[in-house]
C-alpha cells in the first residue's frame, strides 16, 4: 500500500506515498496551492472552495488537487492560464459574500484569503460580482470566542473540527443556497447549543469568522 511514487510538480521532482492527495503532497514540498476547505484525513473531500485547481498531464481540464490521489510519473502544473482563470473567479465569488473589512478584522495578517491573494497576485476586492451582504448578527454568546457569519466562507473546517475531532456536534451547515451558513440546532446561539468551547473550530477557521475574544 505504502508504495513510493515520484511525480513532477511545476518541474520539481517530488516523492510521495501512493494514495496521498496531491494538494497535501505539494504543500508538504513547499509548493503552494490555494486551498480553504481541504482536510487531509477526509477520504472524500468536499472540494467546495474551488481554489486548488491544477492541470495534470493527460487530463483535458483542470482538476481540484484535493481530490486527486498522486500517481507515479504524474506531471502537474499549478500555474497555467486555465488554472489562474478558475482560481481568480472562484476567489472573487468567495469574496463577493465575505465582509471585507480587513483592517478591523481580528484575523488580519493571518487570514487564508489574504494568503491566496498575496500568492496569486489577486485583489482583495469584489470586481465583477456584486457584493452580497450577509446581515447575520455576530454571535458573541460563547465566553471565549465569537462567530461572525458575515466573514464565513463556508469551508467546513469548523464543522469537521466540531463533529469529527472534538465529537461534540454543536454546529453544522444549515439552510440552502444563498442562505446557507454554519449554524446550530434551531438557530440557537452557541451558548445554548451543546458547544463545549473547546476552541478547536476557532483554530480551524481559515478566515476571521471564528475568532477568540481578547
Amino acid at each position: 500500500m505504502s508504495a513510493e511514487v515520484t511525480l513532477t510538480i511545476d518541474g520539481q521532482q517530488v516523492k510521495a506515498v501512493a494514495g496521498e492527495k496531491l494538494l497535501f503532497v505539494a504543500l508538504n514540498n513547499g509548493i503552494y496551492i490555494p486551498h480553504l476547505c481541504a482536510i487531509a484525513e477526509e477520504e472524500r473531500p468536499s472540494a467546495c472552495c474551488r481554489l486548488c485547481f491544477v492541470e495534470i498531464e493527460g487530463l483535458s481540464r483542470p482538476v481540484t488537487a484535493c481530490t486527486q490521489k498522486v500517481r507515479d510519473k504524474m506531471t502537474v502544473r499549478t500555474r497555467t492560464p486555465k488554472v489562474d482563470r478558475l482560481v481568480k473567479t472562484g476567489f472573487e465569488l468567495l469574496l463577493s459574500d465575505h465582509r471585507l473589512q480587513c483592517r478591523t478584522c481580528p484575523k488580519n495578517g493571518a487570514c487564508q484569503l489574504q494568503m491566496v491573494a498575496r500568492e496569486r497576485g489577486l485583489k482583495l476586492k469584489t470586481g465583477r460580482f456584486k457584493p452580497l451582504a450577509k446581515d447575520i448578527p455576530v454571535d458573541h454568546s460563547p465566553e471565549t470566542f465569537s462567530f461572525d457569519a458575515g466573514r464565513c466562507v463556508l469551508c467546513g473546517q469548523c464543522v469537521h473540527a466540531d463533529q469529527n475531532i472534538a465529537r461534540v456536534g454543536a454546529i453544522n451547515f444549515i439552510n440552502r443556497g444563498l442562505k446557507r451558513k454554519i449554524g446550530t440546532f434551531n438557530n440557537r446561539c452557541l451558548r445554548d447549543s451543546p458547544c463545549t468551547e473547546c476552541g478547536l473550530c476557532v483554530k480551524a477557521c481559515p478566515v476571521g469568522a471564528l475568532t477568540f475574544k481578547t
Partner: peptide
C-alpha cells in the same frame, strides 16, 4: 444517535 444540528441541517 446523531447530533440535533444534523437533523436541523
Amino acid at each position: 444517535g446523531i447530533p440535533a444540528v444534523d437533523v436541523f441541517g
